[in-house]
Simulated scan of single mutants.
Amino acid sequence: MSRIGILGAGAFGTALAIALARAGHEVALWARDAGAVAAMRETRQSPRLPGARLPEGMHPTASIAEASATETLLLAVPMQALAPLLRENATLFRQKTLVACCKGIDLESGLPPHRIIARDAPEASPALLSGPSFADDIAAGLPTALTIAAADEARAEALQRELSTPVLRLYRSTDLEGVAAGGALKNVIAIACGVVIGAGLGESARAALLTRGFAEMRRYAEAQGAQAETLAGLSGLGDLALTCTSEKSRNFAFGKRLGAAGRAETLATTEGIATARAVAARARAAGLEMPITELVAALVDGRVSVAEAAERLLSRPLRPE
């Protein structure tokens, strides 16, 4: 078994650390808060995953240099925190494989995670880990399947072997663009589906929105050079199905509150908000038709009401499927 570093001690990073340590890896989990690290070491518990015990092979640390003393680093920080982390530590990340576990689009640049890595840590090798998963399921040892993607087939296969466990099954891909697009846009569609349920528009409307949202995901991904079949896999349709139908999804839950009340508190971990804004801007510039994404961006910015958004979608011209 190998030694693996994970940067980011939120729920997902901690859950991955637990799963990999249980499988026999030595895992260093980095958190900025030294007090939280000390508490995790003492109690073998994480405040982000109540009830989940930290295995002995998992080592919380407040030293990013200590956590990064591995060949493979999992970056489990929020999407909008990825670029600053890379810029601050580019020297530390030289010659490493950096696996981005965040899903979304950088609001400042409009770039997905692997392209942020290529830009800000050019001497590292970018990879992506994405797919339908909730942190508490992974921490509980429940069966989960994800996609691991790297541009090089041999590197993707090596990561697949290294990071798979008896209950965390990884499927490999070389389509970084498709995996990134699926992971990002499913959050936008999840917000839209939450709005539908929160506004009382019904399950049939959610199914329709999920389906048309999937069409938007494919359209956008293919425009980025992705393979259409990638969007039909775990990192596309699989993740979309999970996040659009579960109350455990932060994006769906945010949308549901927005649909019910017309407004909702914005949390940094609701990645679909920034992604909707970034993708809507890129789609407009490229002449891509993304009506659901456009309306989600308008809703979260308060430019349209829920009723106006529904009317706009329902009044669109009839067309072939």
Rank of each mutant, 00 (worst) to 15 (best):
G200W: 13
G262T: 04
A154S: 13
R218K: 15
V196L: 08
A181V: 01
T243G: 12
L267Y: 14
A241S: 10
E222I: 14
L201N: 01
L185Q: 05
T269N: 11
L258Y: 00
L258D: 03
A192R: 01
R250G: 06
L242S: 04
G233E: 11
R263T: 14
D175N: 08
A192H: 06
L209H: 06
E265K: 14
R212Q: 12
I189W: 09
E265I: 04
R169I: 05
E203I: 13
L209W: 01
G213F: 02
A208S: 14
G194W: 06
T243W: 04
I191P: 04
G233M: 02
I191S: 02
T230E: 05
G236E: 08
L267H: 09
A208I: 03
L168F: 05
A154W: 02
R219E: 09
A154R: 15
R218M: 08
A264K: 00
A154E: 15
C244G: 13
D175Q: 06
A184D: 03
N251A: 09
G178V: 06
L176T: 04
T165F: 03
A207I: 08
G225P: 08
L163E: 04
R250V: 05
R218I: 14
E265N: 03
Q227G: 06
T269E: 14
G178F: 06
L201D: 13
K256M: 15
A268M: 12
E162M: 13
R218S: 08
E265F: 10
N187I: 05
D239Q: 05
V179G: 12
G225R: 13
A261R: 15
D175I: 08
T165M: 01
G178E: 02
T165Y: 08
G194C: 07
P166I: 09
A158W: 01
G238R: 07
T243S: 12
R155G: 13
A207F: 05
G200I: 13
G255Q: 03
S235K: 07
T269D: 15
L258W: 00
